[in-house]
Design a protein around this nucleic acid. Structure first.
Length: 294
DNA sequence: ATCTCATTTCCTGTTT
DNA sequence: TAAACAGGAAATGAGA
């Protein structure tokens, strides 16, 4: 019995700030208000959509994330907890408050909110990327082409292609594709060169490979801090579907994928990144992701 | 056949 | 309120 997954929202993305090639399946900001189009989609008033003073904490968080995305600012450079507030509180912040909360980025954020307040008041769409309905945008715009794309991947599985980091000679591990490899002395000779890796690629390697090949899957996952190994899912459900495709499992969801990701914390393949949704960090037992590993 | 491993599935509760 | 996060428990399936 397969539980049907409905359209699930991943973190809304601004236009792929990092990837120069726009995602073939996404025309994010050309999509119109999906609450009109999608039956059952929770409708919100226009004022609630556009005027920051109506935002929830979560929407404030979304705005923050997207504004940083837009300006290609490392999200780790500002303390998100300083913006743990709803839209009303946000709008009551002075220029100085922003400067205090976000340092040098404060003015930029202040300007962004000022623009939004103004555009909200007069009905002008200045901040197009702040489309709270990215969920619906993905439903409308992303999924169908995304599936088409699957067909192209089907025949040429990227993970069967030799990656720049793949050659074993470049890595210390005898089995570069396996994270948990222990020093060979503890393993029988027969298993030293062949890890228990029944399905070819582990999840964390799959994620890593997407990150290392952004042109192949633009807009799915992006580095937040390249050197520290911090990354963020932009299209969580799309990644899950891609993973499911690889595993021949059409019912894969981000919820299930994320459970597998959480198991990696204990094994130190991933480290927790607290307080930031859809953000993970490679741990000491993840290999092949560093720039120096190439 | 049995065991291990790496998920996958399902779940309840919590946080954002 | 929805989406994401946490993590327990059990199931699954492929390799050893």
């Amino acid at each position: 019995m397969v539980r049907q997954t409905s359209c699930v929202m991943s973190v809304p993305t601004s236009a792929n700030a990092e990837s120069h090639v726009p995602a073939p399946w996404s025309a994010p900001y050309s999509c119109t208000d999906a609450s009109v189009v999608i039956p059952g989609f929770p409708s919100r008033s226009w004022a609630q959509e556009t005027q920051p003073q109506f935002w929830s904490k979560f929407q404030v968080w979304e705005w923050l994330q997207q504004t940083l995305d837009m300006h290609q600012i490392d999200a780790g450079s500002i303390p998100f907890q300083n913006f743990d507030m709803d839209g009303q509180q946000l709008c009551s912040m002075s220029f100085q408050d922003f400067a205090q909360a976000a340092g040098s980025i404060g003015p930029l954020l202040f300007q962004s909110i000022a623009d939004l307040k103004w555009s909200g008041q007069y009905g002008i769409e200045i901040f197009a990327p702040l489309d709270i309905k990215t969920e619906a945008n993905e439903y409308q715009c992303s999924i169908p082409p995304f599936r088409e794309d699957f067909h192209t991947w089907q025949s040429t599985d990227m993970f069967d292609i030799k990656m720049p980091f793949q050659p074993p000679v470049t890595l210390s591990s005898p089995t570069p594709s396996s994270p948990e490899s222990k020093p060979p002395q503890n393993r029988p000779a027969t298993t030293q060169h062949k890890k228990h890796n029944p399905r070819g690629t582990h999840l964390w390697e799959f994620i890593r490979d997407i990150l290392l090949n952004p042109d192949r899957h633009p807009g799915l996952i992006k580095w937040e801090d390249r050197t520290a190994g911090v990354f963020r899912f932009l299209k969580s459900e799309a990644v899950a579907q891609l993973w499911g495709k690889k595993k021949n499992n059409s019912s894969m969801t981000y919820e299930k994928l994320s459970r597998a990701m959480r198991y990696y914390y204990k094994r130190e393949i991933l480290e927790r990144v607290d307080g930031r949704r859809l953000v993970y960090k490679f741990g000491r037992n993840a290999q092949g992701w560093k720039e120096t590993d190439k």
